[in-house]
Amino acid sequence: MDAQQNTLEIKNLTVEYLVDDEVVHAVTGVDITIPAGKTFGLVGETGAGKTTTALSILNLLPLPAGRIVSGEIFVNGQDVFKLSPRQLQAMRGSQVAMVFQDPMSSLNPIKTVGEQIAEGMKIHREVSDREALSQATKMLELVGIPGDRVAEYPHQFSGGMKQRVIIAIALACNPDLLIADEPTTALDVTIQAQVLKLIRELKENSRMAMLMITHALGIVAEVCDFVGIMYAGRIVECGTLADIFDNLRHPYTRGLFDSLPDIENRRAELKPIPGLIPDPMNLPPGCSFHPRCSYAKPECSRDLPQVRWLSDTHYVSCHLYNETAENML
């Protein structure tokens, strides 16, 4: 596929952290493609490498520990790693915007929300202060907050409202790509429902691509077009929403679904995945999931499974599918 057609292309990304002279394999060989107007859900548990993947896109890895070992990232066809610091700075907040998990700590407590929304516009688009503030008021209304609250400070807003303000800041420069890192995790369910509705509406009304990082499959089902399941730094299964929810193949994906309580059948027993995620400093040989996998075969502890494409949209990385594309679960 031509790089120009996709808003985001991550190719074979590998990221390591150096901690106390030991190497943490945070992200290994990750590929993600997001066409304009589509949302990609990156799903996984704590420590899977989701946030590291997201931070790599704008070269925001913590230094000096974080290091991009290999791979390429293209935003609108531009190779991010070849950009000068100045060009990268111009991209951050304008072409690519980010929403972080914790609305309480990502706002500046001593600036009004209006100033914070306007800031990006003033930096990236040479608009006057007055023009920026009037735009900020419009952005606030877009995310469902009355425009007359533009001069208020973050402490005057509730958690759900703060997250809306953060979304307004991210959208202020009309980005092509929005990276949302667990945007609703800190919110109550009824407020989460409001914010997800807002995100869905914004998607429908724009060509913005979105990378949604989450641990919750319920949220993926609600807003995403594509899903990547991440485990110990690798994407082990990837496909469209239907591929993953109707036709999942990887034992880890199965385990994630089976761990969730069934809302229709409260007596159904939970089937947790045994064991714990591996230490990223000391990953098991072969497939990282094999010590927890009930389908593990001898080659699983020996060889890294190759990516196998099951359809144009769906791939899995698991030895169960070395010879067959039939569902083995």
């Binding site: 369910v189 989460q192 429902a193 499959l217 929403l241 239907a242 929810f245 109707d246």
Partner: peptide, 16 residues
């Protein structure tokens, strides 16, 4: 408002 992990027969949501 519970986000249900399925893509078919999703319940109608009452927005507060």
């Amino acid at each position: 408002a519970i986000p249900v992990a399925r893509i078919h027969n999703r319940p109608e949501r009452i927005m507060l």
